[in-house]
Amino acid sequence: MAVYISVVSHGHGGLIKQLDCLANLAEKFNVVVKLNLKELDLVSYLKENNIHVIDELYGLGFGHNNNVVFSHCSNILKMNDGDTFIVFNPDVISSVEAIEQLVDSMNKEKVPIAAVNLFKDAKYSLPDNSIRKFPSLTQFINSFLGLGNSSIINKKNIIKPTITDWAAGSFLAFTASHYKTLQGFDENYFMYCEDIDICFRSNRLGSPVTFFPNVKMQHLAEHANRSMFSKHFYWHLKSVIRFLLCKRGLTKVKSSL
Results as ranks from 00 to 15, higher is better:
residue 60 L to F: 02
residue 147 L to Q: 11
residue 165 D to I: 12
residue 48 E to Y: 00
residue 210 T to G: 06
residue 133 K to P: 04
residue 13 G to Y: 00
residue 190 F to N: 11
residue 35 L to Q: 09
residue 38 K to P: 03
residue 252 K to T: 15
residue 232 H to P: 03
residue 160 K to F: 13
residue 43 V to G: 04
residue 58 Y to D: 13
residue 181 T to L: 13
residue 250 L to R: 13
residue 114 A to W: 06
residue 100 E to T: 12
residue 250 L to P: 00
residue 232 H to G: 07
residue 11 G to M: 08
residue 82 G to F: 06
residue 181 T to V: 12
residue 133 K to G: 06
residue 77 L to Y: 02
residue 138 T to D: 01
residue 176 A to K: 00
residue 176 A to Y: 01
residue 105 S to A: 15
residue 184 G to Q: 07
residue 24 N to Y: 05
residue 32 V to W: 00
residue 45 Y to E: 03
residue 181 T to G: 02
residue 101 Q to Y: 09
residue 69 V to S: 00
residue 17 K to W: 01
residue 66 N to R: 15
residue 162 T to P: 08
residue 138 T to V: 14
residue 43 V to D: 06
residue 7 V to H: 00
residue 56 E to D: 14
residue 168 A to I: 13
residue 6 S to F: 03
residue 219 H to R: 09
residue 200 F to V: 13
residue 152 I to S: 03
residue 37 L to G: 10
residue 157 N to A: 08
residue 15 L to R: 14
residue 137 L to R: 02
residue 210 T to E: 05
residue 187 E to A: 07
residue 156 K to M: 02
residue 56 E to H: 12
residue 30 N to M: 01
residue 189 Y to L: 04
residue 112 P to R: 06
residue 3 V to G: 01
residue 37 L to M: 15
residue 193 C to I: 07
residue 40 L to M: 12
residue 237 L to P: 01
residue 64 H to D: 10
residue 245 L to A: 08
residue 25 L to W: 00
residue 122 A to Q: 14
residue 74 S to D: 11
residue 63 G to M: 08
residue 246 C to S: 15
residue 141 I to C: 00
residue 255 S to K: 08
residue 59 G to F: 11
residue 2 A to N: 15
residue 184 G to R: 04
residue 256 S to R: 11
residue 91 D to L: 02
residue 80 N to P: 04
residue 206 G to A: 08
residue 145 L to V: 08
residue 202 S to L: 12
residue 135 P to V: 13
residue 91 D to W: 00
residue 231 K to M: 09
residue 232 H to N: 15
residue 114 A to Q: 04
residue 209 V to I: 14
residue 67 N to K: 02
residue 204 R to L: 11
residue 204 R to P: 01
residue 219 H to L: 03
residue 16 I to E: 03
residue 161 P to L: 08
residue 26 A to N: 10
residue 247 K to G: 03
residue 49 N to F: 04
residue 138 T to M: 05
residue 226 R to M: 13
residue 228 M to D: 12
residue 60 L to H: 01
residue 153 I to A: 09
residue 19 L to G: 05
residue 213 P to V: 13
residue 161 P to I: 12
residue 9 S to Q: 07
residue 106 M to V: 03
residue 77 L to A: 00
residue 141 I to N: 03
